[in-house]
Simulated scan of single mutants.
Amino acid sequence: MLNAGDRAPDFSLESDSGKAVSLADFPGKTVVLYFYPKDDTPGCTREAQAFSAALQAFADAGAVVLGVSRDSVERHRKFRDKYDLGVTLLSDPELAAHNAYGAYGEKTMYGKKVTGAIRSTFIIGPDRKVKHAFSGVKVDGHADAVLALVRGGGASPTPPAPTKVAAAKSAAPRSPAAKSAAAAPAKKAAVKAPAKPVTKSR
Rank of each mutant, 00 (worst) to 15 (best):
D81T: 02
V73D: 02
E106G: 04
D92L: 03
D81P: 13
G136P: 14
F79K: 02
H132D: 09
A117I: 08
D81H: 11
N99L: 13
G105W: 05
T108P: 04
V114K: 07
A133E: 09
A103V: 03
D71V: 04
P157H: 10
K78I: 13
G86Y: 08
V68R: 02
K129D: 09
G67K: 04
V68D: 00
D127I: 09
P157R: 12
V73L: 07
H76K: 14
T108M: 12
L95K: 06
E74A: 15
G152F: 11
P159A: 14
V165S: 10
P160G: 13
G141E: 00
K138F: 00
G154W: 13
A155N: 15
R151F: 05
G136Y: 13
G154A: 15
P126Q: 12
A97P: 05
A145I: 01
T158A: 15
P159D: 11
V65T: 00
R75T: 09
T88I: 11
K107L: 12
R151P: 06
K112P: 11
A117S: 15
H142G: 04
G154Q: 15
L89C: 01
V65P: 02
P160Y: 03
T158I: 10
S156L: 12
T115I: 06
P162Y: 07
R80G: 00
K112M: 13
I123W: 05
K112D: 08
V65Q: 02
H142W: 08
N99W: 00
K129E: 13
A96Q: 09
T108H: 02
T163L: 05
L95C: 03
P159I: 04
F79G: 02
M109P: 06
R77P: 09
K82W: 09
P126I: 08
K131S: 14
V64I: 09
K164G: 07
F134E: 01
H76Q: 15
F79P: 04
S72G: 01
A133Y: 08
K78F: 12
V114Y: 03
R77A: 14
A166K: 11
P93C: 01
D140V: 13
V137S: 05
D140I: 14
A103S: 04
V87D: 01
G125E: 05
F122Q: 03
Y101S: 03
A97Y: 00
Y110R: 10
G111D: 09
V139M: 07
R75D: 12
G125M: 11
R128K: 15
H132L: 10
V114Q: 00
T121Q: 08
L149T: 02
G141D: 00
Y104P: 05
D71Q: 06
A100G: 01
G105R: 07
E74W: 13
A117N: 07
F134A: 06
D92P: 05
T163W: 00
E94V: 12
L85E: 06
D92E: 09
R151L: 06
K112E: 12
R128E: 10
G136I: 15
A148Q: 10
A97H: 01
D127M: 03
V137D: 04
S135V: 14
K82V: 07
